[in-house]
Computed example of a mutant assay.
Amino acid sequence: MKTIAIEEHFLCAEVRAAWAAAASAGQDTSASLHLGEMQDRLEELSEERLARMDESGVDVQVLSLTSPGLHHLAAAEAVSLARRTNDLIAATIARHPERFDGFATIPTTAPAEAVRELERCVLELGMKGGMLFGRTMEKNLDHADFWPIFEMAAHLRVPLFIHPQTPPRAVREAYYSGFDPQVDLAFATFGLGWHYDCGIQFVRLALAGVFDRFPDLQIILGHWGEVVLFYAERLKAFSRVTKLQRPVVDTMRENLYVTPSGMFSQSNFQHAVEVVGIDRVLFSTDYPYQYRPGGGPRNFLAQLPVSDDDKAKIAHANWERLTGSMRR
């Protein structure tokens, strides 16, 4: 059965250098998570990556720049880096067109250029959507500056993936500090902070009326919905105070896709299906962060307590349907 993994990351030396130069701003503390062996795996886009894909049973990786993307770089630098990074993705796909696809890298600190770059990536480079990382500097994702990006994605009929990034410094200090530096970093990132921060960005989009304005816009969240799926019952209560055209939970069922990001939990899978439905579950391994030898991705799909037809939906068919109507 064909498997398409949609949250599979890479990093290039130019972006890594730009992050290092901007590190003094303190916007994102996660760069140290990409060092050593992890850095090598992120930057390798050829035979070693293909071999690990084969070992895991992954036929296609949809490549995306890793967190925090270009969201905290100066506008001119972000625009230039976005074009070069997207050209690198396109060149990688051209070398192995049966094995790779891509999400556009979006320079959100330059919103007008971000719109043009998303359009270029889809119409000229054939990418299947865009990768966002929540906040840009101090602006949440629902800020009016970014609505043209949502409008373009809806027009192109491509999804936007919202990936976690590290919470703001004030939040880290208030909630994720007080231990040794390594524990603080883990707590603020993969331990918990990333996922609350990302889920909040999606809820903000809904509360701001983004999906009322762009009812066909499709969003993807990793890690089984970045916490918010587990609060679907509580999110229903927003209907008492909002004037949205649809309840937030209905938006989740009509505008949201979720993917495991290598968290191969059957209980999380079953809850996701209860909230958004089997047709809105996609497959991903969160390479290279969750990579473990032994064929875990293949085994997870094989062991799901659903029909072969539903396994095929998760493995590839839902993604192919989602991206099958994109403008070309």
Rank of each mutant, 00 (worst) to 15 (best):
E7M: 08
F10A: 09
A21E: 07
A23Y: 01
G26L: 06
S30M: 06
S32D: 05
L33Y: 11
L33S: 12
L35C: 14
E37Y: 13
E37I: 14
E37D: 15
M38P: 01
Q39I: 00
D40R: 01
E43R: 04
E44T: 01
R52F: 09
M53N: 02
G57T: 01
L73C: 10
A74N: 03
A82D: 02
T85W: 08
N86H: 13
N86C: 13
D87R: 14
L88F: 08
H96R: 03
P97E: 14
P97W: 09
E98M: 14
E98V: 12
R99L: 04
R99D: 07
F100P: 02
A104P: 04
T108V: 11
A110E: 08
P111C: 07
A112Y: 13
E113M: 06
A114S: 08
C121D: 05
C121Q: 02
V122R: 13
E124K: 14
G129P: 03
R135V: 04
T136F: 04
M137Y: 05
K139Y: 13
N140W: 09
H143W: 13
D145T: 00
D145S: 04
W147Y: 11
P148Y: 11
F150C: 08
F150P: 02
F150D: 05
E151L: 07
E151S: 12
M152E: 15
V158W: 06
V158S: 07
I162T: 11
P164D: 07
T166W: 10
P167A: 04
R169W: 01
V171N: 06
S177L: 02
G178P: 02
F179E: 14
D184I: 03
T189S: 03
G191H: 15
L192V: 10
L192A: 14
G193L: 10
A208W: 03
A208I: 01
G209L: 08
F211Y: 11
D212H: 09
P215D: 14
D216I: 03
Q218P: 09
I220Q: 15
H223F: 06
H223N: 03
W224I: 03
E226I: 07
A232D: 12
E233Q: 05
S239Q: 11
R240V: 11
K243C: 09
P247H: 02
P247M: 06
V249C: 09
D250P: 01
N255D: 01
N255P: 00
S261H: 10
S261W: 03
G262M: 10
Q266L: 12
S267G: 03
N268V: 01
Q270P: 02
A272S: 10
V281T: 02
V281M: 01
V281P: 01
S284E: 10
T285N: 13
P288L: 13
R292I: 08
G296N: 04
Q303T: 08
L304T: 12
P305N: 15
V306P: 11
S307M: 08
D309T: 08
K311Y: 10
K313Q: 09
I314K: 09
W319L: 12
E320Y: 08
M326G: 13
R328F: 06
